[in-house]
Every structure is written in C-alpha cells, then in structure tokens.
C-alpha cells in the first residue's frame, strides 16, 4: 500500500517536526520546494602518471541534461578530502594537508555535457607520483531547469 500525493490534488504536503515550522527553515518537507535528489554517488582512486602530478576524471551519468553535482578530492597519502568549489584557481590545500607540502588545486569542474561531468586537478612540486581519492554526488536536478 503506497501513499501517493500529486499536484493534481492541488494540495501541499508539509511535514513539520518542531514548533518552529512557521518559518521555512523549520519545515522538514514542504512540497512547494523541490529537494535535491541524489542520482549517483561514488568514490574512486586515480593514480597520476606524470610528475608533477595531475589528473582528470569523467563520470558518466547519462541524464540527458546538465545536473547539479559536488566533487571532493584528496591525495591519499597525508591528504584530507576537500570539496572542490567553482572559484577556479583556489588552492584546496593548506596546513600541510599534503605530507610533502605540495598544494592540490582543482582547475575546473566541467558540467557542460548532457551525459557526463568531469574534474581536472594539478598538484605542485615534483618527485612523487600522486594517488588521489575522489568522491562525488550527482543529483537528478538540472543546473538549468529549462534544459
């Protein structure tokens, strides 16, 4: 037995679990406002083949439009996961997150394709080949709802 609520009912479902529900921040679910729906999430390992290290990955989603997504990365030795942000050129590493003092920088997050997303990064320094672990979440929700 399922519970189905649709817009055909012209109703609003609102679930509030505390008394502060009169403001939207206190509402756990309000059907006026769509939620980000996770379509795909995962993690992987990338081993660089050049020195200084760099790398890139492409993640297929095949949604047929450009989705919202998030990306995190770390170098596995002495690293800490960092979320990649869109302020291109930001150095993701400081405070010796990389054991050798190198800096890890995500150069771009590519969301320009309907079937995949991609990320590219570089690491400063030389003398070691990096192994990176990345984590991503791709949502069903498009960046541009008119797509």
């Amino acid at each position: 037995m399922g519970v189905y609520l649709g817009r055909a009912l012209e109703s609003t479902l609102e679930i509030i679990f505390d008394s502060s529900g009169e403001i939207i921040q206190g509402v756990n679910l309000n059907s006026e406002f769509p939620l980000l729906k996770i379509a795909k999430e995962g993690r992987g390992i990338y081993t660089s083949t050049v020195d200084p290290d760099n790398g890139s990955i492409t993640i297929d989603h095949n949604l047929g439009y450009r989705p919202i997504w998030n990306f995190w990365i770390q170098r596995t030795v002495g690293g800490r996961f960092r979320m990649a942000t869109n302020n291109n050129g930001v150095s993701l590493v400081n405070y010796n997150e990389l054991y050798d003092g190198d800096t890890l920088q995500v150069d771009y997050l590519d969301t320009s394709y309907d079937t995949s997303v991609a990320a590219s990064w570089t690491t400063s320094g030389s003398g070691s080949i990096g192994v990176y672990e990345y984590y991503y979440i791709i949502y069903y929700d498009p960046i541009d709802d008119t797509q």
Partner: peptide, 24 residues
C-alpha cells in the same frame, strides 16, 4: 514496495521524471 512521491506543479506523478519530482 510502498513509496511517497510528490511531483512538481502541473506534472502527473505517472509521467514525471526524477527531475520533475519535489520528493520521491
């Protein structure tokens, strides 16, 4: 398998794609 589905305005839950959902 029970489920709760809410679609965006003017979209039937019968034909809604995941992106058309408010909640699924």
């Amino acid at each position: 398998m029970s489920k709760l589905v809410i679609s965006k305005p003017n979209i039937s839950i019968e034909s809604a794609r995941p992106r058309d959902m408010v909640f699924d």
